[in-house]
Design a protein around this nucleic acid. Structure first.
Lengths: 160, 160
DNA sequence: CGAATAGGGTTGCATTTTAAAACCAGATTT
DNA sequence: AAATCTGGTTTTAAAATGCAACCCTATTCG
């Protein structure tokens, strides 16, 4: 059967994954952040099948993560550019990259280091912080009215 | 054909997505963070098919995001618990939640607010920061030696 | 004690997705 | 005018997904 969809889930993680939670979408967004804009470039850099790329780009455009703009005069050339919504995925992509570098380092390759354009210093880890900027773990947080945290549910779950 | 895998990709985002980049894995991790540990509980909270849940739990255990521990005396009851690697997905999950709440707010529901257990204050947004704690956007960063940022590639791409 | 039920799966089947490669059509280049 | 670039669509076969049914081991109930 088809993949289950969570468009109307009460869980915002589920709704987010609905838009960028498949195998390719975040990689497309990542490459868009590195400056890729053209169909053929995405295709070659990612090694993705063209039909799948079509589908993903269309879906990302539908969800307003990318916008498709005509370039060139006679309109048969396009660019896919990040929207604000798409650019707002930056922390997620970077956190994923850092997680991958930490826990699955490439055997023969230094982890990519991103740097601050202004100072040239390496970007520190993305973390969940309290209001003062101190790092928090999952144990340091709670959901107010949270005696039933698992009510933050996802699927059909008819009843609580 | 089969889904493409990125186990040995030079891109750490691709390697990360290889482990938690499908429709269900991050939701399983999310619920684990909220305290769910048992097969049946995951199944009911997520509304996921049992065989798929089996597969995902096994894969997450293989990848050391979860560990499977026997509970009860006679060993036919198990719990799936987060490892350090799994807990380290916290910023990603939270960033996804915040993104979903910001750009796809649930029609009839306030966004979940997470709070600092110590102070009771709401958790601020997860962001990419410079060394001083100032927020950075994708435009504020660069990859040193980065005249070919797209070399941060993913697929087969035989040559740079 | 025997039956029912809970926990944690596995199996079989129909439906979708995916990957890969072939094909297409409008611009642009040669 | 022919070749090429760009951005797709179509076709086909292999996997992945969802659902329901079945299994086996405890534990609980009568």
């Amino acid at each position: 059967m088809a993949r289950k969809r969570f468009d109307d889930s009460s869980c915002s993680v589920a709704r987010a994954l609905n838009e960028v939670g498949d195998w390719w979408s975040l990689l497309v967004v990542l490459h868009a952040m590195y400056g890729t804009r053209r169909f053929v470039d995405f295709q070659q850099e990612l090694g993705i099948a063209r039909n799948i790329l079509c589908d993903r780009l269309a879906r990302l455009v539908d969800n307003e993560v990318l916008k498709k703009v005509e370039v060139g005069e006679h309109g048969s050339r396009f660019e896919y550019r990040l929207t604000d919504k798409g650019r707002d995925l930056f922390p997620i992509v970077i956190a994923l990259r850092q997680w991958g570098d930490k826990w699955n380092p490439a055997p023969d390759q230094a982890p990519l280091d991103l740097r601050d354009r202004e100072t040239g210093r390496t970007i520190p880890r993305v973390e969940v912080q309290d209001a003062d900027g101190n790092p928090l773990t999952v144990r340091d947080v709670f959901v107010p009215n949270g005696d039933d945290a698992s009510r933050v549910s996802v699927g059909k779950k008819k009843t609580g």
